[in-house]
Design a protein around this nucleic acid. Sequence first.
DNA 1: TTTTTGAGTGTACAAGTGTACGCTAAATAA
DNA 2: TTATTTAGCGTACACTTGTACACTCAAAAA
Lengths: 208, 208
Amino acid sequence: MSQSRAQQKEKTRRVIIDAAFHLLSQSRSYSSLSLREVAREAGIAPNSFYRHFEDMEELGLTLVDEGGVVLRQLMRKARQRIRDRGSVIRTSVETFMEFIRNSPHVFYLLLRERSGTSLAFRKAVSRELQYFIVELADYIQHTQNYPAADAKIQADAMVALVFNAGIEALDCRPAELKTLTATTVTQLRYIARGADEFSKTRTGTVST
Amino acid sequence: MSQSRAQQKEKTRRVIIDAAFHLLSQSRSYSSLSLREVAREAGIAPNSFYRHFEDMEELGLTLVDEGGVVLRQLMRKARQRIRDRGSVIRTSVETFMEFIRNSPHVFYLLLRERSGTSLAFRKAVSRELQYFIVELADYIQHTQNYPAADAKIQADAMVALVFNAGIEALDCRPAELKTLTATTVTQLRYIARGADEFSKTRTGTVST
DNA sequence: TTTTTGAGTGTACAAGTGTACGCTAAATAA
DNA sequence: TTATTTAGCGTACACTTGTACACTCAAAAA
């Protein structure tokens, strides 16, 4: 039992992280959380917080990283499903909607900090989203045989639309969610189809 | 001078509103503003605030309304420009980018409160954006001769993408802004083209 | 004229905040 | 064994917050 000290510390760290995630909700953004509040929720003294994090910003960035892990797990799951039953677009959108329902706290965090007041946060979230975009762009590039740049633009648009749908999903009753999903699927199809047509029609220059 | 009393009140109200807008910035969201801070910026006593607004939420909703006015002015301007020199998509995107540069405070507000913690705010911003979407859908419907529902879906996607570009524009150096604009224009073209193709190919049912 | 109204002020208070400082006690090192 | 390290705590302090209350004094009403 030569590392029980470090183990205990790691455990407390987890408690703090979980407490912070738990406090996030539709009516509570990360920036509105106070250090004392997180400490209270974690069941530790306010000062103990500093044994684990420099300040709230450092904790926040840790949360974003953890959120990124959840996102990548989601991505893997989606890939698996696509292999199982085809239909890239519908499967992706449905998997994402499921994610929002299952891990709303993570989604709140990423969504809000993406356009939040802290540059460090914005960068961190942006970096996590890039994984998604790059991966999707790769997929498009290889299955559709597009130039990498075009695939990236397309993937970027698709992720933006899915995220946008996520925002609307927050205030949706379950019934409306189906419509929203269908709408989003249609929008992604427009993009896929449009990009496809452009790649066929590729003329030298395009007029304004 | 029989209404100088009401005039003075209106004037102070404006000072408060302007003070609040002035405090908004890339590093300052509305929800992080305190009543005292706004009062300080406006040069009035904290208590005087209550002579004009019930609480900070009421002031915030007023700001969103005023932001909506700015947006609609923008829309009118864009329509004029389109009439002058064609090219709907490029003109719209450029006008919007200009708006972000000229009225960043308004954009910060709408952007953040759209996915913020207050339902009232989310609804208010959503309502303002609907003007945009409906107007754009109308345009598409009439110039392209689409069913209203399809046009709405298309317009919705376009506004989402332009807004998304706006988020990225916030952390852009002017040089990158040109690339971003070009990318966004391409994305909107994908949608326009994709929707067009779908409307042509309209078969009975579409498989998953 | 006198009376009433109401925008704006100053004081005050309870509640919450971040964090500095010094301590305890248990795990680890010597 | 003894000495050192360190996670966690309690107290304390200076600060900000929202807002209740009692006032002023000029404009509007009577």
